[in-house]
Amino acid sequence: MTSTRSLPRPSVAKPRPAMRTRSLLASRLPVWSMMILGLIGLAVFFLYPLLANLYFSFTNYDLAGAPHWTGLRNYVYLFTQDSRVGKAALNTLWFVVILVPVRMVFSLGIGLLLSRRKTARGFWRTVFYLPALVPPVASVVGFVFLFNPGTGPINAVLRHLGITGPLWFNDPALSKPSLLLLGLWMAGDVMVIFLAALLDVPKDQYEACELDGANGWQRLRFVTLPNIRPVLLFSAVTGVIAALQYFTEAAVASMIANGKTGIDAGTDQLLGYPDDSLLTYTQWMYVQGFNSFQLGYASTMAVVLFLIAAAVMAVLLRRAGLFTKAQG
């Protein structure tokens, strides 16, 4: 009690400017000491790399020598000459426009089913959520093995049913849909969020709706969806951002489905298998940056990725006012 009062209060005491600075410092010191690590982190691991990356994007840089200013050369290469960057961007786009919405609809469906259940909801939630916890590398290794066209159990089961199974991860037309299956299997994280939101929808709104004679679709359309809109928006945006950086699942699937060990082939020759169908933008960036060691060009790719991600984030920050202010 007493100690608080002994603290000088600038606004009350109105001390001279010098005094005021010192006391402000004294009272603010603990606060800034709480922030210092995080602020250093923002400067060193966020702001500096953003700016440095911009600089590198205008250079020919391989780390063995100093960066060499080449103006827009990397940008010209990216937009007019790099024939694989287009494929890679399209593959990433596929994951953005197919994987993200399908995962959301699927999660919403399961969420709706579970939200209507009165018993054993926890059990079902665990069943659907657990796969989302499995390390992605482990899931991919498992899936690629299960879906191996020659020796995998899935096609073995199909054979027993008299069906010739497809090539799955080895077919350029099916490799992305195969990863979509994996994505659905791992959709539990989205499902849990949706389920919680669905359970929060006020019951009386449903009852009112039912009195009006609304059918199931109308209930969903006019009660459920508007109520969980913030959650849908949030998971759409984080889903898109995650899809923009889609790397691990596709890379590991390529390497394992390929059957090559990469002992004599570089990773760059394994990534994207089959036929570049799984080569995503970030993988191509990785190959350019850390296999070919064209860091300047990789930085150029990063600038473009940044602009796209920034546009997506702008939507979130605009639409969900929740984020824009820290306090007050």
């Binding site: 500096y48 953003l50 970030t282």
Partner: peptide, 10 residues
């Protein structure tokens, strides 16, 4: 929210 690859090189 920023994809980590954006700032990977530096």
């Amino acid at each position: 929210l920023l994809p980590p690859q954006v700032i990977q090189v530096p």
